[in-house]
Amino acid sequence: MDQIPILKIGDCLLVSIQVDMHDRLALQLQDDLTNKIVTSRARGVMIDISALEIVDSFIGRMLNNIAAMSKVLDAVTVVVGMRPAVAITLVELGLALTGVRTALNVDKGLELIRHLIDDEQDPDDRREE
C-alpha cells in the first residue's frame, strides 16, 4: 500500500499529495501527520494539493479535519496550490474550508506559516490586535 511522504522543513511539515486520494489513504495520512507533529514538535503544516485534479467532499472534510487536529496540537495548517477547477468544485459542494488557511503556492505558503508562527510567538503583537 502506498503512503504519502511527510517532509520536515525547519519547524514545518510539508505534505505533497500527488496521487488520487482514496479514503483509507486519507485516514492513514491523518494518523501519520498527527504522529509526526507530536514527534517533531512542528509548528506549521503545509499541504500541497497542486497535483490533485479531483477533490470530493471526503477529501474536503479531511483537509478540514487535519487543520482542526493540527490546531489542537498547536500547529497552523496551510493548504497550497489548489487548482481553479478544484476551488470551484469545493465551493459548489458548499465546502468553503473555513477552518483552513490557504496560499497560492508553496513559496507563499511558507511565508504565511512563518508570519502566523511569528505572530503567535510574540505575545505583544497579539495583544495589540
Binding site: 493548504v79 497550497v80 489548489m82 481553479p84 478544484v86 476551488a87 470551484i88 469545493l90 465551493v91 459548489e92 468553503a96 474550508l97 490557504t102 496560499a103 497560492l104 503556492n105 507563499k108 505558503g109
Partner: peptide
Amino acid sequence: LKTVSAARLMGA
C-alpha cells in the same frame, strides 16, 4: 460569496 470563497481557497 461563492466567488469570494473560491478565491480564498486559492489563497487570495
